[in-house]
Computed example of a mutant assay.
Amino acid sequence: MEKLVIATRRSKLALWQSEFIRDELKKHYPNMEITLQEFVTKGDKILDVPLAKIGGKGLFTKELEVAMLEGNAHLAVHSLKDVPTQFEDGLQLTAVTKRYDPRDALLSNKYSSIDELPKGAVIGTTSLRRRMALKLLRPDIELKDLRGNINTRIAKLNAGEYDAIILAATGVQKLGIENEVKYFEPISTDLMIPSMGQATLGIETTTDPKIVELISVLNDNDAQIESTIERSFVHTLEGGCQVPIGVKATIADENSVRVQAIVGMPDGSESISEEITADIKNYENVGQILAQTFIDQGAKDLLERAEKVAFK
């Protein structure tokens, strides 16, 4: 092929990610023309309603998928945490890139940690998973919805609308904007388990064998193992971004992988959590097996109730 077209959202982070993948592909295919085609997705347009109420993070991928299916683009670059576990016919997840910092982070101009937050502090996040984790850690704080791109969210913090906000550490780090607030403090995954695939880029393509072969060179083996476990866990639970699910797989050594997982109610009133160490050779089955242990403890009923609360 002489040309590749990358479908991308227009946010600064989405453009950074797509430009990064374009540059990585150029290293492998220096003579190929690789261009970006920008889209505004439904998720970018609706900023006054929590994602869980309008269809979840798939709203950020739909327009890009249509462009690929209609032949107007060959691939799309996503934050893997935003990529649903099932795809439209004709599309697939072809590569995942090396993982960056998977943690969530607290950003504040007043307080350097969750422990320092005073009673009644106003924390900005719309993520049901982060809400659950925060309420488990600090049931005395107040949670307030927070939508918009990273820069918009930080601007709201700096305008004094929140005492602190929670964002994915990697997005702030990629844009190099940690110093726009006084405190940027990543949170241990022992305290706040990330979303599936957080800090990994997922490259979605058509199923065209030529495209798949071209893009597969970007796949990172470690990220592939970790994200397979995480996505299998969520898929088996039949969960998505409409419900509070955290799962993080971490390769411990050449033989084992550590997996942390949690599901629960957005207000932290109920939760199920597990941490296991599994044989890395069986990584393709680990997520499903772990999810079944959650199901045996009533996770599906818990998530159904959590979803009803989220849609109120």
Rank of each mutant, 00 (worst) to 15 (best):
I141M: 10
P244Y: 01
I295R: 13
E304K: 15
G56T: 10
S127K: 13
L36Y: 01
D190S: 15
V49S: 04
I262R: 09
V77K: 09
S216C: 03
E33N: 13
M265F: 07
D104Y: 15
Q86T: 14
I114W: 15
K42S: 06
M132R: 05
K174P: 00
G240W: 04
V217Q: 13
Y162D: 08
A121G: 00
I21K: 04
V49R: 14
P194Y: 05
E274V: 02
K98N: 02
V96Q: 14
I289T: 11
T41V: 08
I229Q: 02
T277A: 00
K12A: 13
R147Y: 03
M265V: 11
A252E: 12
I177Y: 10
N179T: 06
E142Y: 04
S227K: 02
K12P: 00
L47H: 05
S108R: 12
Q260D: 14
R131H: 07
I295P: 12
T236G: 04
T126H: 11
V234F: 03
I276H: 11
H78Q: 12
T189Q: 02
R131F: 01
T293Y: 03
I123V: 15
R99H: 06
D301L: 13
T293M: 08
R103W: 02
S108D: 05
L214A: 14
D104I: 02
F184S: 03
K53F: 06
V212C: 10
A105F: 11
K3H: 14
T125A: 08
L137F: 08
G55Q: 09
N72E: 15
V217M: 09
A252S: 12
L175T: 07
T35Q: 15
L146Y: 07
L157E: 04
Q92I: 05
